Amino acid sequence: MPYVFLLLAIALEVVATSMLKATDGFTRLWPTVGCVAGYVAAFALLALTVRHVPVGVAYAMWSGLGTAAIASIGVVFLHESLTVAKVAGVLLVIGGVVTLNIGGAH
């Protein structure tokens, strides 16, 4: 169950981060409310996760999967450029997550 909480936390964080641009610097009410609510719910679920999963492993998965998802959303939906450096960076982050899970999960 902790990993279900973690996946939900990552999904909510990705949604909230995706909404940041729509907040227009937190000047638009409803996108701001959605963004803040997403972050609050994501952190609450992350807090539930770290009761059972080492914080280093949970945070590595949170940041790695979130980074990969946000980079993909940026390219597909926000028309950001896809560069070799961006792809390499995401692959390195994912590699770090895998390494932490192999070496630090037990």
Rank of each mutant, 00 (worst) to 15 (best):
A69E: 02
F77S: 06
T49W: 07
L65Y: 10
V55E: 05
I73D: 05
G74D: 07
V75L: 08
W62K: 01
P54S: 04
P54Q: 08
G74C: 03
I73T: 03
L65W: 12
A71H: 09
V53D: 01
V84L: 15
A58Y: 04
G56V: 01
A58R: 01
T83W: 06
H79N: 14
A44C: 13
A41Q: 06
W62L: 09
I94Q: 02
V75M: 08
I70C: 13
A71K: 07
L65M: 11
V40I: 13
R51S: 10
L45A: 02
G66W: 00
G66T: 00
A42C: 08
A60P: 00
G74P: 04
L92C: 12
V50Y: 02
T67R: 11
H52T: 14
V93N: 07
A85C: 11
A71E: 08
A58S: 05
A60Q: 07
G66H: 01
A88K: 01
V87E: 10
L45Q: 01
G89C: 05
A69M: 09
I70M: 13
G89W: 00
V76G: 04
H52E: 14
F77W: 14
V57E: 08
L92W: 13
S81K: 14
K86Y: 05
V84D: 14
A58H: 04
V55H: 08
A44G: 12
L46K: 06
V55P: 12
A44R: 04
W62P: 03
Y39D: 04
T67F: 06
G89L: 03
A85Y: 14
L45K: 03
A68E: 03
V57C: 06
T67N: 09
L92G: 06
L65K: 00
V40C: 10
T67P: 02
V90I: 08
G56N: 01
V93P: 10
A44W: 14
V55Q: 11
V76S: 09
T49K: 00
A44Q: 11
V40P: 10
T83L: 11
A60V: 07
L45H: 04
A42G: 05
F77I: 07
L45V: 05
V75N: 05
P54T: 04
G64Q: 02
H52W: 09
F43C: 12
L46D: 01
F43V: 14
L78S: 13
S81T: 13
V90L: 05
I70S: 13
A47L: 11
